[in-house]
Design a protein around this nucleic acid. Structure first.
Lengths: 110, 110
DNA sequence: TTTGTATATTGCAATATTACGATAAAGGTA
DNA sequence: TACCTTTATCGTAATATTGCAATATACAAA
């Protein structure tokens, strides 16, 4: 049905999935990598850097904003986007914890 | 269009996105968590544990198999699924490396 | 062989996602 | 004021994803 049955999963499972989902598109990976590279805030150069139309970039930024991963400060005419560092660290911890669930060396079977 | 313009991104960006995407559904998170909990291989108990129909579970397993995250060994009548540990570690490293792109303390602006 | 059990596949309906042209909104500048 | 730049939103088309009933497949046991 295209709709996810979120209600049958735990809050934690849904949260991990939400974080992973927003990272599940190369454009958003590229946006975050660009944000990391240009240490200062970036504004409208994403459209030029990434090869997607302006409305498409705007939509991807919206997805990132929905999870609070980035914030946008109005700077005169344009908008200065940057990372929400605390959220990033929080999500990083959540993902890292999930990624270590198989760390038990006894976890071997086939 | 629902279709991702993969060709305009790097191989690495696409790979990170692919890994994140497969983790972007709570059912697949639940499957992996279950696999981690029952140290031994699991077979058909996923349908009972998770509240989804058998074809749906089968489809999610297929997604995980597509990325080589799990492997299924035929065990008599049923199938024994387990983690592909090497792949898991590989993907974990890739994600961890990406998640640390903002580690530079100078990365502050807003 | 027949029956039962376990898993995969097919086919379909509903919803979500991706992408972009057109347009709107908001601010700067002449 | 009029014009330009920047970003957001709307509307729409194409494709993807999720979920399940029905069915197929494969094997074991009676």
């Amino acid at each position: 049905m295209g709709i996810t049955k979120s209600e049958i999963f735990t809050k934690e499972q849904n949260q991990i999935a939400s974080i992973a989902k927003v990272l599940g598109h190369p454009a958003r990976i590229a946006i975050l990598e660009h944000l990391a590279k240009v240490k200062t805030c970036i504004c409208g150069d994403l459209v030029n850097t990434i090869g997607l139309a302006q409305p498409t970039i705007s939509q991807h930024l919206k997805e990132l904003k929905k999870l609070d991963l980035i914030k946008g400060n109005i700077e005169g005419n344009s908008i200065c986007y940057c990372l929400h560092k605390e959220k990033w660290e929080e999500f990083k911890d959540i993902l890292n914890q999930f990624l270590s669930i198989f760390s038990d060396p006894e976890n071997n079977c086939c």
